Amino acid sequence: MPLTPLPRLMVEPIVRAALLEDLGRAGDVTTESVIAADATLSAVIATRQPGVIAGTDCAVIAFDLMQPGISVVVERPDGSAVSPGDVVLRVQGNARAILSAERVALNLLCHLSGVATATANLVQAVQPHKARIIDTRKTTPGLRALEKRAVRAGGGDNHRFGLDDAVLIKDNHIAAAGSITAAVARARAHVGHMVKVECEVDTLDQLHEALAAGVDVVLLDNMTPAQLKDAVAIVAGRAVTEASGRVTAATAGAIAASGVDLISCGWITHSAPILDLGLDIG
């Protein structure tokens, strides 16, 4: 299924803020002193390592904001698997504008492609099991929409986008409410019928309590693959099962083999290594 782009209305303010941060109070003094105002150039953004691309819309907008009319051709759209040397974007136009936008375009493109690549590696690791890789709210402040879309570019899926679109009762909520039963009952009484209720559990006893309370999803936190397998058997289809904790490409396969529906991972958004890309003139 083609990856639907985010509306420019959502992306442009993020890119604009990044450009303003980089240009500072005086603009790009290096480029303006070295490059003639009417100089033009052609360049490509190419990959230095294999991975999956995300964030091309950010790069396109960065160049366009510096100077409308710069030609940007996307050769590898978001979600594309790439090898070293593959051309992702071709850029042509005013040299000053291209060089001044270069770092912001690359910062966003490299970071988001890193998120997509990390996600794709986990998606590959859980094959051929049914488990889907999902993200969390552990995102870079201000970049959540971009990072969550990058997860989808890598073949993953999204957990809730914020505090307002689902109930997730965690250990501190349970401690403050007194019990899982009390917390779930209060949540059900507060939210509408369209809002799903998920509860984090650390033990099989807590799992039994959460199921009795009627949750829609159980978050099985930091359980071993053997414990996860037992939990899936106990749930027996009565709720969606989500495993979380200590998820890496090395552990994801065993976690998926337990039969869980979802595997959530925070590091794919907040700590994924960048995918190395660079802008080359010529």
Rank of each mutant, 00 (worst) to 15 (best):
A105P: 01
A43P: 06
T136K: 01
V91M: 00
E242G: 11
S42D: 07
V201L: 09
V15S: 08
R149T: 01
E75T: 10
A185I: 04
D165V: 06
V197I: 12
A166S: 03
I180T: 02
E32Q: 14
Q206A: 08
L228M: 04
A231I: 12
T119A: 03
V29Q: 14
V104C: 07
A233E: 12
V60G: 02
G79F: 07
N172P: 08
L9W: 15
V72A: 05
L143P: 05
G155I: 09
L211D: 12
D202C: 12
A43S: 10
G282F: 07
A39L: 13
G154S: 07
I61E: 07
I268G: 05
A81W: 12
E102F: 11
L262Q: 04
T31F: 07
L9I: 15
Q92Y: 10
I255L: 13
D38Q: 14
V218Q: 02
A183R: 01
S244N: 01
P50N: 06
G51Q: 03
E32V: 13
T31I: 10
D276N: 08
A185R: 15
D202W: 13
A125Q: 09
V232R: 10
E32D: 15
A125P: 02
E75N: 13
S100N: 06
T4Q: 15
D205V: 11
V74L: 02
P77I: 09
A36Y: 13
G114I: 07
G237C: 12
V74F: 04
L275C: 01
G142P: 11
T203P: 08
E198M: 08
G156L: 10
A175G: 05
G266T: 00
N172M: 13
A46R: 10
D57H: 05
L108P: 01
I45L: 06
T4E: 15
A36R: 15
T203D: 01
V91C: 01
A252Q: 00
